Amino acid sequence: MPNNDPLGEIDLEHWTQYDDIITDSLWLLGKRDNTGAHTAEYWGNFVPQIPQQAMRRFTKRGELVIDPFIGLGTTLIEAVRLGRHAIGVDIQPRCVEQAQARVQQETGENGAQALAIVGDSTRPETAAAVQEVMRAWGFPHAHLLILHPPYHDIIRFSEAPNDLSNAPSTEAFLEGFGQVVGNFAPLLAHGRFLVLVIGDKYARGEWVPLGFQTMEIVRQSGFRLKSICVKDIQENRGKRGQYHLWRYRALKHNFYVFKHEYVMFFEKVGK
């Protein structure tokens, strides 16, 4: 049976002391945390508050977090700050180099280790390389899996043809995402959590529900859905200073401007 006890370090006898832990499905996080080694220079970085909340709820100090899409290392930085070990993967060597350099700027608790690896997370050999590091560190399984993939082709992150942001179609993107889940889900311990951070897209006059499409892929991969949280999107670099233009376009073309993305939580119930 799935575990119903708290997985993090919350003491339920003093549960009222955790005012900063989010328990509602609407996440109004405001401005991203750019303190320390964090940076907002990379378009695809997600706000550090998301992995911070996830790790505090669903891991303990000394446990292991894996992120197959690290970008500039947001998850790794937060893990080290919180005393969690972390392994991250990115397809871009420059991102991995920067992520490793940034995480080294942080002072970890309890000797927390973090490693960034260059690799294509859709390939089984990349997950095998992560598992090799896990064994060297003494971990038979990971305790949290965080996935923040590209929102298909909204932002092109590299020239690599196997980069999910370069997938030629929505179907190809979803197939590649499914390969990532299939590669990394076996590394996660039974009863532990997978966090999916993703938004939808708009193409050729139609809303493309990437969030729900990827949600179904995870559900069919040995996980049960625990929560769908909706996070507010602050004005991003692509739309900065263009609020009135986007409002005009929405009125003219009968759509609504994206102001949210999803933070979905799944519990592993399969093998």
Rank of each mutant, 00 (worst) to 15 (best):
M264E: 12
G119K: 09
G138T: 08
R204Y: 09
A128S: 11
E97P: 00
I22A: 11
V89C: 02
G176L: 07
V269S: 05
K268I: 08
D153W: 12
F212E: 11
L196N: 11
A114I: 08
A37R: 10
F255R: 12
N166M: 02
D24F: 04
Y151H: 08
I117D: 00
A99I: 09
R224H: 11
F139S: 05
A40I: 06
G119H: 10
M1S: 12
L115C: 03
I117L: 15
I154Y: 01
L29I: 09
E97V: 03
D120G: 03
R57N: 07
K259M: 04
E206V: 14
P150I: 05
V230E: 04
P6W: 12
H260D: 07
R32N: 05
W207D: 02
L26M: 12
Q92M: 06
G182C: 02
A136P: 00
G71K: 08
W137E: 06
V180C: 05
T35Y: 03
R135L: 12
E235A: 09
A203I: 11
G191L: 08
H244L: 15
V257W: 09
F258E: 13
A172M: 06
R84P: 00
E261L: 02
V89E: 01
R102E: 01
E13Q: 10
L26S: 09
V96E: 00
L147G: 03
Q242V: 00
A79F: 03
Q105Y: 04
W27N: 08
I50E: 06
Q179F: 02
Q17N: 10
E132P: 00
D20V: 02
H152E: 03
T126G: 01
M1A: 13
K252D: 12
S121Y: 04
Q104E: 15
T170W: 01
N3D: 14
V181M: 04
T35S: 14
D153T: 07
G88E: 02
N110Q: 13
L188A: 07
N254Q: 14
P168I: 02
K239M: 11
Y243F: 14
I77A: 03
L196P: 05
G119P: 04
R247C: 02
L147R: 09
I66S: 02
L194F: 12
G270A: 13
F58I: 02
W15C: 00
I22L: 13
I233C: 07
E206K: 14
L72M: 07
R84V: 03
K31M: 05
L76A: 13
